[in-house]
């Protein structure tokens, strides 16, 4: 029998990605580009929310959007109607974006002159939470039909986000969605998170999100 040896590696699998993410954040800081990573389940309203937000900010900031999906370019087409710069990224079946893919996406988008870059991550509450994309801030959308118990089921996602938008509040009367209970559950996981109830369809509450995004972008640039 051949002699064998054991070599200790003891490396977190996410470590490599974390390093890449930190490098990317530093690069963005140098270039004065604010990158927001926007996450949610499929159908929570990421694209509609973004469209509304871009409408409010496009006079003040130069915006670029990266749409990440497993397939299709319907989201990129919708965003391009706002006049914002947009690129569609295909993940080839992968359920999340990592820092390296985000960096490639930014290169593809062309960030020269861009103040605010937004990454619309793959619709998924599990995997994107595990991978730091290199974004300056993380935001997520939870929509009312998904239920107020989601913070209990996907705690990590709620833990890593700086802002939570609770979308589709116009249909709250038709669902057993307890807004107060939901906010309490989220705050227990993440006391610093900012919760903004919105309705992307009517535009209600979007101004608060746009304000936050604008202030954070300016703060990052100075």
């Amino acid at each position: 029998m051949k002699e064998y040896r054991v070599l200790e590696i003891k490396q977190s699998v996410f470590e490599d990605n974390n390093k890449q993410a930190d490098l990317l954040r530093q690069k963005l800081k140098d270039e004065k580009i604010f990158l927001l990573n926007l996450m949610s389940s499929p159908g929570a309203g990421k694209t509609t929310t973004l469209t509304r937000t871009i409408e409010m900010l496009k006079e003040k900031l130069r915006i670029g959007v990266m749409e990440a999906d497993i397939d299709s370019d319907v989201d990129a087409a919708t965003i391009s109607e706002t006049g914002a710069k947009v690129i569609q990224l295909h993940t080839g079946g992968m359920c999340h974006l990592d820092a390296d893919m985000t960096k490639q996406g930014l290169e593809g988008l062309g960030t020269e002159g861009v103040d605010l870059a937004i990454l619309e991550n793959v619709g998924n509450l599990v995997c994107p939470a595990e991978f730091d994309t290199g974004a300056v801030k993380n935001a997520m959308i939870l929509s009312v039909p998904e239920g107020d118990d989601k913070p209990l089921k996907y705690p990590l996602m709620f833990t890593i986000c700086d802002v939570l938008l609770i979308n589709k509040i116009d249909v709250m009367p038709y669902f057993d969605f307890d807004l107060q209970a939901c906010i309490e559950r989220v705050k227990k996981l993440n006391p610093d998170i900012q919760v903004i109830p919105v309705c992307a369809k009517t535009g209600e509450g979007i101004e608060d999100f746009a304000d936050w995004l604008y202030k954070e972008t300016i703060k990052w640039q100075t």
Partner: peptide, 11 residues
């Protein structure tokens, strides 16, 4: 919450 590559057994 860990996900580590602990070691490899090799020749």
């Amino acid at each position: 919450r860990e996900f580590y590559i602990k070691e490899i057994v090799c020749y």
